[in-house]
């Protein structure tokens, strides 16, 4: 009788709180689990490069890249496939 009471006591005072905690934790973490890993600034980045609307090759081979515009021996001309004077902007966070 005493054993049965203690079993019920454990179930009520430990089992139910643990169940509630598990449900709340699941509700909290479910969205992030569904979305997958998230980028966190300052932490390292392990994902492979992604090039959207790029050439057929996903990542350029540094050994076969064209010379930079303005580099010695490569006069900047139109129609060579190498961008001439460029513009744009830079930022960091």
């Amino acid at each position: 009788m005493i054993t049965l009471l203690s079993g019920h006591t454990v179930l009520v005072f430990v089992g139910i709180p643990v169940l509630v905690i598990a449900v709340v934790a699941l509700l909290v973490f479910a969205p992030s689990i569904a979305k997958g890993p998230r980028y966190r600034p300052g932490l390292s980045w392990w994902a492979p490069p992604v090039w959207i609307n790029g050439p057929a090759v996903t990542k350029p081979d540094p050994a076969h890249l064209p010379e930079l515009p303005g580099a010695p021996g490569t006069p900047a001309t139109a129609g060579t496939g190498v961008a001439r004077t460029t513009g744009g902007a830079s930022a960091s966070w």
């Binding site: 090039w51 790029g54 050439p55 090759v57 890249l65 190498v82 460029t86």
Partner: peptide, 10 residues
Amino acid sequence: LELLNELEDP
């Protein structure tokens, strides 16, 4: 810039 020059019409 190298990436840009890899594209078809930089």
